[in-house]
Design a protein around this nucleic acid. Structure first.
Lengths: 171, 171
DNA sequence: GAAGATTGATCTATCAATCTTA
DNA sequence: TAAGATTGATAGATCAATCTTC
């Protein structure tokens, strides 16, 4: 809970050396995955920046707020959902607040919490730009893979995420 | 060739709306992939930063240079290999040059090219830090997936990359 | 003029320190 | 004092403009 921990958390591989090297085909596959991550983020960032004037994380902050009836979420919850650190989200929300897409309000019941609320204008922005973004995701990811391979990649991704979360937990 | 094009290149989805929405399971899978990309880059960046004082891209710049006998590559080639724009790579190499891990020299045959050369110190840095990095990749990616699923993900990644490159080519 | 590369201005992410409420 | 959140300083990425060599 509360977004990503700091990078100063303990190393995943305390023992360090020596490395068991990867096979040639494993290395090739990992490079493909690594390249995909770089290229795909770049392509999606670009599409959103051009069409909506929003970064990928900004877009998803609006999207995650729109999915609850109250259009409201705690900052820490929103950080977790957008894969951002709390610090990063706080800066980001400050910028979106200046653009009147989100506003902040303290939680009535417990003043330690800050709620981020999607404004009308923020919702309008999201609604206006969601179709083009979804089409891009479909075009670059869903169509080239097909449903079966996409689901398979999703399942594999979940195993990696679980490993990362597990490693950070035990620090 | 020549690293990544600018983000101002034409949109992937000229028609824009309307969007054909994704199924619930497709959305869930895409969110897993998206989250994996964010979490994994973050985890790998963190490991390298803590252990080696290098960013992921800086590490790979050194690694790509080490793989050729001359320890030398053109800037544009290195940009492509590290998935960085030429501008980003140029700034990055400037910083690594200050740390004496890479040096620049103009190509003798054609003065338009700049060659990036791995220094002894740069090679030493890489050799010192490669094992821990490979172990982290193994720990977070290869082991949770297993070789078969890793190769499958690599193949899927290649299809996505081909789609992105194809889309940018026709702009 | 075109390709490769660099530069400078601006914007964003990160880290560490701080602040607030309970 | 602990959890949630914010802030300020620094480092890095991006874009547009420029520079160099052919």
């Amino acid at each position: 809970m509360g977004g990503m921990p700091h990078r100063t958390s303990k190393s995943t591989n305390p023992g360090g050396e020596p490395a068991r090297w990867l096979s040639a085909e494993e290395v090739a596959a990992w490079r493909s995955v690594s390249r995909m991550m770089a290229r795909l983020s770049w392509a999606l960032e670009g599409q959103l920046q051009r069409d909506a004037g929003l970064s990928f994380t900004e877009y998803h902050a609006l999207a995650m707020l729109s999915e609850v009836p109250t259009h409201t979420r705690r900052m820490s919850e929103l950080a977790e959902l957008t894969n951002a650190s709390l610090s990063r989200l706080s800066h980001l929300v400050t910028r979106l607040e200046r653009r009147n897409l989100i506003r902040r309000e303290p939680d009535r019941d417990d003043g330690r919490y800050t709620n981020a609320v999607l404004t009308e204008e923020g919702l309008a922005q999201l609604v206006a730009n969601a179709p083009a973004h979804v089409n891009t995701v479909r075009d670059l990811v869903v169509d080239p893979l097909g449903t079966d391979d996409l689901l398979q990649m999703g399942a594999a991704a979940d195993r990696i995420i679980a490993r990362i979360d597990g490693a950070n937990q035990s620090s």
